[in-house]
Every structure is written in structure tokens, then in C-alpha cells.
């Protein structure tokens, strides 16, 4: 077999020969011992390269793959705005307390250092169903009872984040410390509402 024959055989194995050439090679493989041996060697090498990969692929476990990938992906470029997150978080009965919540957000965002809060919440804030300015409202001396709220004593935010604390009014309610992106120049989350849907 010369080099040209070898190349023809390679093309034959890939099914890339014209029909008449393929028929000629098939005839040679069937009748010529040298062609036959070369053909068998190439068939076998392909099988032996492929078999372990096929076997390993069949037992591959991709269960943790997505979690591993997702954990390393960068955060989406456009995150939900402050308003969107507040809208998502708040339910209609809370609308009455929004002004107080906004005031609390502004207060904690600009607060330079932890400061002891007043001993008791103001009556107005206490009436807010779900959001209240936690630093002030939550400082009543709480007994070590799980039904009492977590008390936020002080907040320092030196970066661009705004901290907003949602304190429960009902005993046993949930305390959530929100960490939100500060409003940006484009008005994302900070601008006054422009649609009827805006809760603030």
C-alpha cells in the first residue's frame, strides 16, 4: 500500500469517498490481505479509543455541575432595583408604613457609626405592619424569649450599600436585615415614583 492508498482507506473509513471509489476500496479490503490488515487495524484502533470514553460517559454524574457553574458566574449586570425589591417585599397593607421605612433607610445609610437607639419605639412606627426603622423601634429590653424580635443595636455601612431592617410587629414575626444597593445616578430605586404602581 502506498501513501495514496492509505489516504484512500482513511477516507473510506469516514464514508467520504465517492461511490465508485468506495466500491473499489471495499473490493480491495475484501480481497487484498494488506488492505484487509490495514482496515482491521484502523477499525480496531477506533474502537479501542472510543470504548473507554463511552463507558465513562455512561456513568458520568452531572448532579453537581450546574451548582458548581452557577456559583462562579458573575452576578447579572442588571439586578432588581431597590424599588423592585421593595415592591416584591411589600404587600399592600404595608403601604401606610412606607414613608417611615424610607426615612429609616435614609437614616441608616447615612449613619456614621453604631449609636445606641432610643429605649422604645415611637407609636407611629410601632403601628407599621411589617417595616419599621429597626434601630429605634427594636431596642426595648427584650427578654430572652424566642418570640421577641432580634434587636439591631447599630449599623455601620461604609460602602455603597443601604441597610434596611424589617422588624416584626406581631410577636414571633420575622426580622429581616436587607442589604440593598444604594441608589445610583440613573435613579435606580431612588427616584421618586413615576407610575401609579410605585409604592413610594
Amino acid at each position: 500500500m502506498n501513501d495514496q492508498d492509505q489516504e484512500k482507506l482513511s477516507l473510506f473509513l469516514d464514508g467520504a469517498l465517492a461511490p465508485e471509489d468506495a466500491a473499489e476500496v471495499a473490493r480491495l479490503v475484501a480481497t487484498d490481505p494488506e488492505w484487509k490488515a490495514a482496515h482491521r487495524a484502523l477499525k480496531l484502533s477506533g474502537e479501542m479509543m472510543r470504548a473507554p470514553v463511552e463507558q465513562a460517559a455512561r456513568s458520568a454524574n452531572f448532579d453537581g455541575l450546574w451548582a458548581g457553574i452557577e456559583g462562579r458566574l458573575p452576578a447579572p449586570e442588571r439586578a432588581p432595583s431597590l424599588l423592585e425589591r421593595l415592591r416584591a417585599f411589600l404587600t399592600p397593607p404595608v403601604l401606610v408604613g412606607l414613608a417611615a421605612a424610607a426615612a429609616a433607610a435614609a437614616y441608616v445609610a447615612t449613619r456614621p457609626a453604631p449609636t445606641p437607639a432610643p429605649a422604645s419605639p415611637s407609636p407611629g412606627l410601632a403601628a407599621t405592619p411589617r417595616i419599621a426603622p429597626a434601630p429605634e423601634s427594636a431596642l426595648a429590653a427584650a427578654p430572652a424569649d424566642a418570640s421577641e424580635p432580634v434587636v439591631i443595636e447599630g449599623i455601620e455601612s461604609e460602602g455603597s450599600k443601604t441597610v434596611l431592617v424589617s422588624q416584626p410587629v406581631e410577636p414571633g414575626g420575622t426580622t429581616v436585615i436587607w442589604l440593598l444597593d444604594a441608589p445610583d445616578a440613573a435613579g435606580d430605586g431612588a427616584a421618586a415614583p413615576t407610575t401609579d404602581d410605585d409604592p413610594i
Partner: peptide, 20 residues
């Protein structure tokens, strides 16, 4: 990384959340 410090007081077995 967010440069946020919080001082809080919590009772035992009281769940609270940080989110956002």
C-alpha cells in the same frame, strides 16, 4: 466586602434573616 457591620442582640432559638 459590602463594608457593613451590624451589632445585634438576639435571643436563643430565634430565627432572623439577612437578605438582598
Amino acid at each position: 466586602k459590602s463594608k457593613v457591620n451590624l451589632d445585634l442582640k438576639a435571643p436563643l432559638k430565634k430565627m432572623f434573616y439577612q437578605a438582598g
